[in-house]
Each structure stands twice: as structure tokens, then as C-alpha cells.
């Protein structure tokens, strides 16, 4: 069990799940968020008729925290992988619990910092006009996440399916495939089943950079 969380807290706010049990499901209305005390959960999403594991979380991790901000439907499904014990929070008890656990508040602060950046980055993709630029910027963003230097002429593996890329670009799948095939035809990328190999990331970084400069003017 996670240290620093007494039994009385579990009695009041705790919940237990069996292996395989769904904790919440994508598109379900959301109202609360969770801190894992023990066990592991799997974060999944169904993309193009395949269940994809986005992350595995364990003791001390927080999930579903977007519910404190806005009651949007859940963006992913969480399934207990082992027997799982969690604390359940909502807007009402949230501040109270944080007060006795500043460590958790700090953790949340860190998650928010990351989330703000990720959301801003995604918004940047969506401000570009033209499907080919958006797709290019998805490659650049994924390279950034892997810590690849954008001026280096290297290969980068993008672990995304065409569906996922289309979703990130907010364009129809057909348009996305058209762009990908065009890039592949030009030898700029290799199109594989579940991933894309970008042959020279610097080239895409430059395409996006120039496009942005144009917008600024």
C-alpha cells in the first residue's frame, strides 16, 4: 500500500476492483478521479476497432483527473489489471484530501504542467491550415516527445496508426491516408501497419517552421 494514506481514508473514499473490472469507460460522463493505492490499471482506447493500451499505472499514480476541471466524457477506458485499491475523489472532497496530502497536490501540479504543454502543442497543430502541414506537425511533435533534436537529419519512428494521426489532425481518415501515401511516394516516410518511419525529421521540422512563419506575417 502507498505510504502516508491511513486506513481511515480508505474506509471513507476507498474502492476495490477485481482484475479485468472496468473502473470507467471511454465516453462515460465523468465526475470523479482516482489515486491508486495498490495494484495496476491499464489505460486503453479503442481505435479503429482495436483496443490499444496507452499506459499502465501503479501505486501513487493519479488518473481521471480531468474530471475536476470539466465534466467532459472520459477520453479513455481504465481497467484493473490486478486487484486494485483506489481512493476516489470529486470536486467536493478534493481540496480537503489535498490538504492532508500536499505531496499529492504537488503531483497534480506536475500533471497539469505537462497537460497544459501537451494541449498547447496539440492546438498548435490544429492552427495550421492544410492537411499535409498538420500531418507533418504530428511527426514533429512525436519527435519532440522522444527528445529528438529537430535539426538532426535522422530517422524517427512514429508509433501511431493512420487513424490516430487523423484524430490528432482533426481531419477525415481518407484525407490523412492521402497525405501519408503522398509522403510515402516521395520517399519521405515509410508507411507500416502500426507505425510510420520518418526518414528525415529535419525536413518536416523545416516545412512546419516555414508554414508557421508565414502565418505570423
Amino acid at each position: 500500500m502507498l505510504e502516508g494514506f491511513g486506513d481511515n481514508l480508505f474506509e471513507k473514499y476507498g474502492k476495490r476492483f477485481n482484475p479485468g473490472e472496468i473502473i470507467f469507460c471511454e465516453y462515460e460522463p465523468s465526475n470523479d478521479f482516482y489515486l491508486i493505492l495498490s495494484g495496476n490499471v491499464r489505460i486503453t482506447k479503442i481505435v479503429g476497432n482495436k483496443e490499444k493500451t496507452l499506459d499502465i499505472m501503479g501505486p501513487g499514480d493519479i488518473f481521471g483527473e480531468m474530471a475536476i476541471l470539466e465534466q467532459q466524457p472520459r477520453s479513455a477506458t481504465v481497467i484493473a489489471q490486478t486487484e486494485v485499491k483506489v481512493l476516489v475523489f470529486n470536486r467536493e472532497n478534493f481540496e480537503l484530501i489535498l490538504q492532508s496530502n500536499p505531496q499529492m497536490a504537488l503531483k497534480l501540479l506536475k500533471i497539469f504542467c505537462k497537460r497544459i504543454y501537451d494541449a498547447k502543442r496539440q492546438l498548435m497543430i490544429l492552427t495550421l491550415d492544410g492537411d499535409e502541414y498538420r500531418v507533418a506537425d504530428v511527426f514533429v511533435m512525436m519527435a519532440e516527445k522522444q527528445g529528438v533534436k529537430l535539426d538532426s537529419h535522422t530517422k524517427v519512428e512514429i508509433k501511431l496508426t493512420p487513424e490516430e494521426i487523423a484524430n490528432m489532425c482533426a481531419i477525415p481518415l481518407d484525407n490523412c491516408l492521402k497525405v501519408l501515401k503522398q509522403y510515402a511516394k516521395l520517399g519521405k516516410i515509410d508507411l507500416l501497419d502500426n507505425k510510420v518511419i520518418v526518414n528525415n525529421i529535419a525536413e518536416f521540422a523545416r516545412i512546419v517552421h516555414n508554414k508557421r512563419k508565414l502565418i505570423k506575417k
Binding site: 480531468m66 476541471l69 470539466e70 500536499p102 497536490a105 497539469f112 497537460r115 497544459i116 494541449a119 492546438l123
Partner: peptide, 23 residues
Amino acid sequence: LIKMLKVFSNQLRRIGKAVREKL
């Protein structure tokens, strides 16, 4: 800490909304 959390969550909410509108 709580004040920062509130400021950041407001920012996140705003950006999240902008992203969703575009999506």
C-alpha cells in the same frame, strides 16, 4: 500550492476547450 493548482487548472480548461472546439 492550491492557488497555483487553480491557476493552472484554469489555463488547462481554457486550452482544452480550444482544442476540443477545433477537434
